[in-house]
Design a protein around this nucleic acid. Sequence first.
DNA 1: GTAGAAGCTGGAGTGCGCTCCAGGTCAACC
DNA 2: GGTTGACCTGGAGCGCACTCCAGCTTCTAC
Lengths: 127, 127
Amino acid sequence: MTYSIAQAAEHSGLSIDTLRYYERIGLVDPPARDSGGRRSYSDDDLGWLVFLTRLRTTGMPIRMMREYAQLRHRGAATAGRRKQMLFEHRASVRARIAELQSCLEVLDYKISHYEEIEHTFIEGITA
Amino acid sequence: MTYSIAQAAEHSGLSIDTLRYYERIGLVDPPARDSGGRRSYSDDDLGWLVFLTRLRTTGMPIRMMREYAQLRHRGAATAGRRKQMLFEHRASVRARIAELQSCLEVLDYKISHYEEIEHTFIEGITA
DNA sequence: GTAGAAGCTGGAGTGCGCTCCAGGTCAACC
DNA sequence: GGTTGACCTGGAGCGCACTCCAGCTTCTAC
């Protein structure tokens, strides 16, 4: 199967402009072109795009995604380094989750504080 | 207790420049000044700064923090709206955590895939 | 009374990650 | 064969959240 840029955008959740941008900065390999010079994405291309969106969602900076892409391009010999990158990135995602969870506690506390205020206010009225 | 801008920066984890920037854009009230015209932060000021850093850490955009700050400035009458904001923000933080966790699964999968490759490689050598 | 550290102001600059635009090509349908 | 719509390119522009700078003042210590 091949896909137009609009279909690739739809499938990956990236915009058409972002797809061209990613190609320009070397994050994705230039896809094949059809007879009219238009981009024609393969299933593999789409798989890579989707994986990239996962990395992006987890906050990996583009320069790191590009580094990963370049290693991938150099083949199996770089598998260890790529694994290492994902390993470290996973640790940072876990740390980020922990950080968010600790902030959630602050939010919970604040919200319960506001609820207490409301409560006091209602008691004040009904008293 | 009062604190110099350097101490406020130290305590909040924000940079001195960021403190002045937050003041400029109306995220924090201008603190008191000492006899020489220098900023002199109170414990309350610091508490607010620390809370702001929690909001920022959880990804609340500055314009929303500013809205919150403005409501806070208008006193108890806006408590309900502030609570509502925190409530909604908490939901978005939870959603963000869920999103990160689902991406973690993808990372786990990818990493285990690399481990499998390593394994196969070693078997290939020792065979 | 002078050197050095810390702070002040207004404004310019930065890095990131897109996003938009003008002006052109190409294919398909009426 | 003319219009429409999707796609093309190179390059400019944008929003966010800072960060840095020049040139000045003020306090502290010697």
